[in-house]
Design a protein around this nucleic acid. Sequence first.
DNA 1: CTTATATTTCGAATATTATTGAAATATGGA
DNA 2: TCCATATTTCAATAATATTCGAAATATAAG
Lengths: 113, 113
Amino acid sequence: MEINIAVKALAALAQESRLAVYRLLVEAGPEGIPAGKIGEALGIAPSSLSFHLKELAHAGLVTSRQESRFVIYSANFAQMNALLSFMTENCCGGAPCGPDCSTACPHVEGDHS
Amino acid sequence: MEINIAVKALAALAQESRLAVYRLLVEAGPEGIPAGKIGEALGIAPSSLSFHLKELAHAGLVTSRQESRFVIYSANFAQMNALLSFMTENCCGGAPCGPDCSTACPHVEGDHS
DNA sequence: CTTATATTTCGAATATTATTGAAATATGGA
DNA sequence: TCCATATTTCAATAATATTCGAAATATAAG
């Protein structure tokens, strides 16, 4: 992952409404939720929500599919995994590290992609 | 973790210089790096770097200690772990999910990989 | 005490982001 | 076709962030 992509993904999550939307979509899983339901659940105006969803989608964190009149959004877990890997890359220079670190750094427990 | 804390942490990371600083500190591990070396390694002006380090520190993502004339910064792995947990909380409503999801969601019970 | 080094704070210019109403687009049904 | 529903785009405003030079602070050494 390139740093600009990571920055874009983090910026997409660094906003209260968008983070709430993303967490809702994580909870919903692969089935996703239609845009209207998201706005209803979180109390976000349609035009604001559209702006935020576009931001999340452009960052690759969510995907959308059209289903009849509804646009259904869902979390892109692969992108989140890539982001997490990028942030903890080469943790502690590859040396064994304590429990706090090892939780954040997948390389300690096994392969490090 | 409260959503405002998470947003602050994500905003701290959602900037190219700061993300680079954070990744450098993750790589350095608990020993940390003095501010000057960080600026030198990444080509950031002292006043800008100070601003960014303060932002990261205020978000709880890095800590600092004074050692002689130097201020040594290091990554706070516990805060990153808390952030990751917050973002993937109640993934897929707790239901078993695919390999992509299970990687991102440490809380998922059982082995879905 | 004076000087050099390391880092932070301040100030001001520039750039980016968020919000919302109103208008536009798209789909499905009467 | 015409209307209602779902969502997006546009435009203008308001709020927030970034940058870096210059000045300030702090520690150490001569």
